[in-house]
Design a binder for these strands. Structure first.
Lengths: 193, 193
DNA sequence: ACCTGAACACCGTTCAAGT
DNA sequence: ACCTGAACACCGTTCAAGT
């Protein structure tokens, strides 16, 4: 039967979770779907575009955050990190797709953060910059965290107090988010609208 | 005559500047040096390690910053961004090498930032986190800036008021750095030592 | 409209064998 | 110690031709 975009994205996500980003190749994906490599290029212009669709699939679980601007920033950051950690190499994939401008959902998340910073009193242009700073932090932190997690998982047996390490990572993550929120809170009045 | 590590890194940097990261391949580099591809693996364990050496070469120009902790953070950030923008795809290459833990100089830069944040009053563990946040920002911002710059350069003719755009990018960059410095300045006393 | 088959132009890495 | 030659096991992308 016919190949649909969503089947391709689903198969790609499964491949990612099982074997990681390095093994998510167009040829291997085609093999998994039982089609020739060229078939994928009817549905996607190139690999970058396909990876962008996978990134958006991963980000689909990031919930809308409610509350005041601080709560919304914290909520979006936590939801974003959770989504990235839910898939093998998720942070690296989304980070690359965002940099390549291939993730529509990532742009929406940026917009939501920009709204929150605007509510904190920033003029629109500065609000987007502050929102970008938040996104760079979440992506940078989580790429780092995930590479260590996956390295540890591949290596020695996990220590029994795994949860302590998890809690620590959570706390470390929130520390950086709070640092950015503090910066936004006390920003020089000249940037406010 | 004999192939030395520094010749390989110099040729790799030249290839990067002329053709970009995508065309910096082990085979092409070997061809440029007049050796067989396998020869490179006598001097470097793998491509990642070689790219790390190129990253460190790029970062060699980042100057030591002096002054109080704020001036040092601003100086390191500005010097880092300048170094990255001086080579085609420099930001992307250094970002990837840093994430892969292959850049010794990047670790030293992180240490210098950690020292500065410690002087601002943070306990060591929190100081490193804040320093990482700064690094994530500089890398994220500059990867983004450079991809736009290179996209524009490849496309339409540059407008006459190019310098205005440059100044704008400088100001935008400093805005984010100041946001982080503000966050560090007013951080919750519980994280201070 | 959607896909196949086959080709094009490459990759990173390894390793016996040479000097 | 340092490098070659050749192989291994792949890549992303294109495109005439088929249905």
């Amino acid at each position: 039967m016919q190949l649909h975009k969503r089947d391709v994205v689903a198969a790609a996500t499964a491949l990612l979770d099982s074997y990681g980003l390095a093994d998510l190749t167009m040829r291997r994906l085609a093999r998994e779907l039982g089609v020739s490599p060229g078939a994928l290029y009817w549905h996607f212009a190139n690999k970058q575009e396909l990876l962008g669709a996978v990134a958006d699939q991963i980000l689909a679980t990031v919930p809308e955050a409610a509350g005041d601007w601080r709560a919304r920033i914290e909520g979006v950051c936590a939801g974003l990190r959770d989504a990235l950690l839910s898939h093998t190499d998720g942070a690296e994939l989304v980070s690359a797709s965002f940099a390549a401008g291939q993730s529509a959902v990532m742009r929406r998340i940026l917009d939501r953060l920009t709204d929150a910073v605007t509510e904190a009193g920033f003029a629109p242009a500065h609000a987007e910059l502050a929102a970008r700073t938040v996104v760079y932090y979440v992506l940078g932190f989580t790429v780092d965290e995930q590479s260590r997690l996956q390295w540890d998982a591949a290596g020695a047996e996990l220590p029994a107090d795994q949860s302590v390490l998890d809690d620590d990572a959570d706390a470390r993550f929130r520390f950086g988010v709070d640092l950015l929120i503090d910066g936004i809170r006390v920003a020089d009045p000249s940037v406010l609208r």
